[in-house]
């Protein structure tokens, strides 16, 4: 089909201003791209792109600062919430957020995330949980499902010796100082829409100074799971969601009372 009527053409889909025009290094079928886009759309819609300072973590998203068109710093492994604390405390009027994976946040960075949440730091944490270490080539993470094979649990995660997955949203929700902690998924369009709305709420929580907000996003890792992108989405739905139930784990009354636009 040849479109001739450009006069009446309407842009229905374009790159958010908050994303740079750079091809990402993410593997085909990885949901990092989706998560990036959602964060970018939300910051665009809130007009916060030029008022944001992102904190990149260590893992596959180490280069996320290349893809977000805004000020960024890059943290040591697991330390993004501490670094974000440092930034936010001297620039309280900026939108400060971390973008972390499950190895970074739930393993090496457990102390930093717990205490940033415990202090009620007015930052937003975007937490991608794909149950595996991606960047180093598919090792077991604290979030790896029981029986799941990884390069460091070749026979499958043995819960007798390697314990059970850590459920970060549930854990952080128990802390009195957190304002908004929810889990969403990126495995189909309906869930992606919910994820975007949650991200919008989380950033609005920060905007209104209500305290710590985190959105956990169940994500795929086709390369290291050893299955194709489509199967990966099914894996999220069939295996990840039952282990990591989607839902709102902590929503302060003040957050419930907010009227959140968009999405």
């Amino acid at each position: 089909m040849v479109i001739t009527d450009t006069q009446n053409a309407k842009v229905v889909y374009e790159r958010p201003e908050s994303l740079t025009d750079i091809s990402t290094h993410y593997c085909p079928g990885c949901t990092h791209g989706t998560a990036h886009r959602l964060v970018a759309e939300v910051l665009d819609e809130m007009g916060r792109r030029e008022h944001s300072i992102g904190v990149a973590s260590v893992g596959c998203s180490v280069f996320s600062y290349n893809y977000f068109d805004m000020d960024f710093v890059q943290a040591a492994h697991g330390r993004a919430p501490a670094m974000a604390t440092g930034v936010k405390r001297v620039f309280p009027d900026r939108t400060v957020y971390t973008y972390q994976g499950d190895g970074d946040l739930a393993s090496i960075g457990m102390a930093e995330i717990m205490h940033a949440a415990g202090r009620g730091e007015n930052i937003t944490v975007v937490f991608l949980n794909n149950a595996i270490y991606g960047m180093t080539g598919g090792q077991m993470a604290p979030t790896t499902l029981p029986g799941m094979k990884t390069t460091s649990s070749p026979l499958g995660r043995d819960v007798e010796t390697q314990g059970m997955p850590l459920k970060m949203s549930e854990i952080l929700a128990t802390l009195d100082a957190t304002a908004y902690v929810v889990r969403r998924s990126l495995h189909n369009p309906a869930e992606i829409r919910k994820a975007k709305k949650a991200l919008r709420t989380a950033f609005e929580v920060q905007e209104r100074g209500l305290g710590f907000s985190m959105v956990e996003l169940l994500s795929s890792c086709p390369t290291n799971w050893g299955i194709n992108p489509l199967e990966s989405l099914t894996f999220i739905e069939d295996k990840m969601v039952p282990a990591y139930p989607l839902g709102d784990y902590k929503v302060l009354e003040a957050v419930k009372a907010m009227k959140v636009k968009g999405a």
Binding site: A75, A82, M83, G86, V87, A111
Partner: peptide, 10 residues
């Protein structure tokens, strides 16, 4: 560990 990373951020 956290203190020095807060310093780093700031």
């Amino acid at each position: 560990v956290a203190a020095i990373n807060m310093v780093y951020g700031a």
